[in-house]
Each structure stands twice: as C-alpha cells, then as structure tokens.
Amino acid sequence: MMWLSGGFIFRRGTSVYHRLDPRVKLLISSLMFVTTLLVRSLYELAMVIAFMVAVAAVATVLRRVARTMALTFIFSTVIFVLNLIVTKNLETSALYAVRFVAIVVSTSLFFITTSPDELEQVMKTFRLPRDVVFAFVTAVRFIPVMMLDTLQIMDAQKSRGLELEKGNIIRRVRNMIPVLIPLVVNSVVRSGELAEAMESRAYGAVRRPTSLVEYKASWADKVVAFAAVAIFVLTAYSFYFVLPTTVL
C-alpha cells in the first residue's frame, strides 16, 4: 500500500523539474491534462503519454509515475469494461481507459514534485481564501501521516488475529472495520488538536498574514513556461489540422 501511495506523495528532489517555479509546474501539468482531453485517437494519446514519460524522466520520478499507473490500473480496467459494454467499440473503450491513466499521471507529476509549502504559495497566488488554502494543503500534508497510521493500525489488528487478506469480498470489507474506526477516530482527534495548536499560535489573528517565501519566476522559469505553451499550441493544432484522426 505504501508502495502504491508513493505515486502521489511529494518527496524532495534535486532535479531541474523539482527546482522549477511551482506555478510553472502547475501550468505544465494543466496543459498536459487539457491535451489528454483533446486527443481523439490512441495514436495521439500515445504521443501525449510519451511526453509525460519524458517529463517524468527529467524530473527523475519515472518509478513513482509507474506506481501511479499501477494505482490507476483497477479503475481504468473498470472504465474499459463499462465502455466496452455500452459502446461495443474496442478502440473507444481503450482510449477512455488509457486517457484516465494519462489524466491521473498529469496530476500526479505536479503533486510528486511540488512540496505542500509550494502548493500553498501557488494557491495564494490565485488569491483563494486562506482557510480553503490551509485546509487543502493540510489535507495533502497529512496523506503520508494517514498512510502510516493505516499501516500501524493494520499491524495492531493483525497482531490480534485479524486476517485482512482472507475470505470473500464481503468478509474482507467487514474485516476493514477494525482498521477504519481507529483511523477515523485518530484523524478527528488529530484535527481537533491541530485546530487548538493553530489557534494558540494566532491563526486567524490577521486577515492577510505575510509569507516567509515570496516566489518570483526566474528567466529560466519563463522560458520553460513559454515552451510549454508553445508545445501545447503546436500539439493541439497538429491534432486537429495535421494528423489523420478518427473522430470519436
């Protein structure tokens, strides 16, 4: 489970991509996201995924992107089967299933290379309400903590004879109750403690608190952002006016 979760959790890195301004990384991920929605054939989608893999290689997170793909496998299989039943078209079904993987990978590339602090700064740039930013960033920041809690709770219950991997699907779901209840209770307790700790450190005392770090895009960031937009425009243009495609 921890192996799979690694596909979405940020870890510090020193690659060129990690060092980019977070707003540029958000721009690149957003453009990749939109491009996956523009594709009209598996051939085009393969090109977009190849580009994502190249970005992941530059960011030295190929293995972790592979985990993201592994994580989406079950969902994309469901999408494929449902589409196949409804449309009875193999290529369309495959396109939707693979598109889902591409969408998740484009989002994952942003989250695994952007720290919660950077994420906070990005959200502040868009002048989102402070409470919303704080809630979202805290949720992201606590994902690894929750994962660790889950593993510890599973260990504790397995040590009391609970067999999580045995039985049919209904029994397995029922066996998760001793894991889910402590997880939820701990999370609620933790959120209460966090709220108290924040209030005791003057959270909300001023409407617009100052920031420790103010991001300023360097010329390199601007070049990368410009290149990303240019590639996006060229790709979108080629999809619709150059490459032969099957309109779905």
């Binding site: 809690d149 510890q152 709770i153 260990d155 504790a156 219950q157 040590s159 009391r160 109750i177 001793p178 209840i181 402590p182 209770v185 701990n186 307790v189």
Partner: peptide, 11 residues
C-alpha cells in the same frame, strides 16, 4: 503485542 499507541487498536 501491545503497541505504543493504544488508539491504534481500540475500535
């Protein structure tokens, strides 16, 4: 095993 945090098992 009695783990460090009892809240990890009580449900």
């Amino acid at each position: 095993v009695a783990f460090q945090n009892p809240d990890h098992q009580l449900f």
